[in-house]
Nucleic acid binder design. Structure first.
Length: 260
DNA sequence: AGTACCACCTGACGGC
DNA sequence: TGCCGTCAGGTGGTAC
């Protein structure tokens, strides 16, 4: 589930593989993921090259001369750079052909991702009304984001309009590391707890990026590899529990993360 | 402002 | 063997 760390790993992957190569052709394999038209993509990007990338929350941006390609990965999106056609991934929806004969695929099994083209990165932030990128915040900025909030902390962390980049999976990890119950009300967090959430947010996101967003490489103290009802808690004798709210699953340890 | 619930979408998985 | 219901969780919409 591509959240901030996954998308940052994709960004570095694109930087390491596909920068500064002339794009000869863009093959649209599935129209549904395109928020723009194949014609506009072709006109503005064919013949150019990706020069630089950025990321805001779960969005990856790639600059090609005068335009920015915007990639969102939905639940199942990923990037694949490959050298010969037989390495083409199963669900590529957009395929960039480079002049050197290599390819970059935007692969998205469930078609919930979206690719768009804009003139300036700020257009993305305005259009989607995104909050600041979660990793760009200092503690003051983080506090400002939470200032007017009264609902459950997990809901606020996952709200892209408040701060961008955190989804269901990483919000569970942040709250586990901060030892806070997911339903704790934001307005009931004391300054110490706010600090704990901020520290956990920063630690978890940077650690996950360092681990290539691969749960197999995460520290043993992490709950993400155990997001399963009845799994052992990494920190106590308790077991992980699942609760549903607003239609999604939250996993937590009832012993470590007490009820508010 | 918050919360609940639905839809989009595909493939994996369990039950029969 | 194969059909069916359920689930995964990002975003966005509606209703209360």
């Amino acid at each position: 589930m591509p959240e901030l760390p996954d998308v940052e790993v994709y960004r570095r992957y694109l930087d390491a593989t596909a920068l500064h190569q002339t794009i000869e052709r863009i093959e649209v394999k599935h129209q549904r993921v395109l928020a723009t038209t194949p014609q506009k993509l072709g006109t503005n990007i064919t013949g150019h090259e990706f020069e630089a990338t950025r990321r805001h929350g779960k969005y990856l941006l790639a600059c090609a001369d005068d335009v920015w390609l915007v990639l969102h990965f939905g639940m199942t999106g990923q990037l694949r750079y490959f050298e010969s056609p037989d390495q083409e991934p199963d669900h590529d929806r957009l395929l960039f052909h480079f002049a050197n004969g290599h390819y970059l695929a935007y692969d998205c099994q469930r078609l919930l991702g979206e690719v768009d083209m804009i003139d300036e990165p700020r257009q993305l932030i305005e259009a989607k009304e995104l909050g600041p990128d979660a990793l760009s915040l200092d503690f003051e900025g983080f506090q400002a984001c939470l200032a007017a909030r009264r609902g459950a902390i997990k809901t606020s962390l996952m709200n892209q309009q408040i701060l961008a980049g955190i989804g269901n999976v990483y919000s569970d990890e942040i709250l586990f590391q901060a030892r806070l119950h997911p339903k704790t009300k934001v307005n009931e967090l004391d300054p110490g707890a706010r600090h704990a959430v901020f520290e956990a947010l920063h630690d978890v996101l940077t650690t996950a990026i360092d681990c290539q967003a691969d749960p197999n490489q995460f520290p043993a103290s992490y709950i993400i590899p155990r997001r399963e009802s009845g799994a052992p808690c990494p920190d106590c004798e308790g077991t992980i529990q699942q609760i549903t709210f607003s239609g999604r699953n939250a996993y937590y340890c009832p012993a470590c993360q007490r009820k508010p």
